[in-house]
Write a protein that binds this DNA or RNA. Structure first.
Length: 111
DNA sequence: TCCCTGATTGTTATT
DNA sequence: AATAACAATCAGGGA
């Protein structure tokens, strides 16, 4: 562990993370974080966000591929979501001569 | 009031 | 190939 692990995390100069527009797809780690943050909050509600990240990061490293599998799958789905979003953006630039909009309203008797 | 920072890893985009 | 920036989260601090 003391080893530099040969990978000195490239110190990010600035971390500006607040952008508008198409958001990047969430990675498996992100999905794991969302679920873990909730449960972890129940167990240790006093943990700060940054501390949760540390704990989650350590546990994530212990997870096996099988454990990450379900999360990776979600990531794949989100990837497609992003992929379509991108395609949608491109498609939007094209002149849409045919636009089919279908509105299906079900009858709701609730009044 | 609004924007940025911290801490994690993974993915995307850019060069 | 390698590097920069950003994805969720949330509370606090600065302008």
């Amino acid at each position: 562990m003391g080893k530099k692990a040969g990978k000195a995390r490239v110190a990010k100069k600035s971390k500006r993370v607040k952008k508008d527009g198409p958001k990047k797809p969430k990675s498996a780690f992100m999905f794991y974080s969302q679920e873990r943050r909730v449960t972890l909050k129940e167990e240790q509600p006093d943990l700060k966000i940054t501390e949760q990240s540390k704990v989650i990061g350590q546990e994530w490293g212990k997870l096996t591929n099988d454990q990450k599998a379900p999360y990776a799958e979600k990531a794949s789905q989100d990837k497609e979501r992003y992929n379509q979003e991108k395609a949608n953006l491109s498609g939007h630039a094209e002149d849409e001569e045919e636009e089919e909009k279908k509105e299906e309203s079900e009858e709701s008797d609730e009044d």
